[in-house]
Write a protein that binds this DNA or RNA. Structure first.
Lengths: 146, 146
DNA sequence: ACTTCCGGTCCACATCATCCACGACGCCCT
DNA sequence: AGGGCGTCGTGGATGATGTGGACCGGAAGT
């Protein structure tokens, strides 16, 4: 993991459709060498996957909310219960008064309410506190520091 | 935007390196037709970009925190002030007692503290409340409903 | 019923990813 | 200091893939 790798990661985060020849030129390597670097980054799981960013509003998920989930029991093994709710985009165990923080996307606030209902059905969940996002300034890839 | 488009979005979210021939077969179309569908999805900004998911820990951002930012003024025009802090991965205006919710990734808790300091330097910011994530259950693409 | 248009298939070509043999550089061991 | 070796990059060959164009069929509108 040197500066060249970090620069490649940056370039790929920007646009993963670029040809290796272009990537190579950008970092001062041949296409073959750039390809080999990226292959190793994939192999070592530094690059988890190549994906596509979808406009949430275009697929009927225009409402974004963060929900603090309170619990009366240990939630550390309930990951799959949360993953089973497709509207949940992220779920994290957190330090602090709540136990779990989830990021939810739905089409309407009614659907958000239904998600909260399904959260309550998870054993151990004793309460929720939802916060709706009114506007998103930005959502961007992890900074690589390069 | 029909079911075929949604299925293509799903497939691409899973793995955007697949050949169009494969994508086409998966949805019952020729490679050319699949290509045309995807081209239009890109053109219409339903697909915002093709990118690469990077393991945060591998690039020195193993600490994840969510910060509620309180303010004494209207924050709606301060998006760029937040965007200028590279450790911020997301920033949203929220409804509720706080004004802005940000998602932060740093290498250490000391660096997290430094980010909080920089948040305070934004005019109008009157307080912060940070919550550290201990474990991430999952982070996944937006559900397309397909 | 004719026209038009959208969306599909099929095909051909240019581009690109991918693999391999070779060479340069730096490091360790004797 | 010299020699061997492992790592990393280069350049070219080749086969797969993206990409554009010509053609076709069905649906909708006049």
């Amino acid at each position: 993991m040197d500066d060249v790798d970090r620069k490649l990661l940056n370039l790929l985060q920007e646009d993963a459709t670029q040809a290796y020849a272009v990537l190579g030129k950008a970092v001062g390597l041949s296409a073959g060498a750039a390809h080999e670097r990226v292959r190793k980054l994939r192999e070592s799981e530094v690059i988890r996957r190549t994906t596509v960013e979808v406009d949430p509003a275009a697929v009927g998920s225009g409402v974004l909310a963060f929900v603090m989930v309170d619990s009366s029991a240990w939630m550390g093994d309930s990951g799959e219960r949360f993953a089973a709710i497709p509207e949940l985009q992220e779920a994290h165990i957190i330090a602090g008064s709540a136990s779990v923080l989830v990021k939810v996307r739905t089409g309407t606030t009614e659907q958000l309410q239904d998600v909260l209902r399904r959260l309550y059905e998870i054993e151990g969940v004793s309460g929720t506190q939802a916060t709706v996002a009114l506007e998103t300034f930005f959502e961007r890839p992890v900074s690589t520091g390069a």
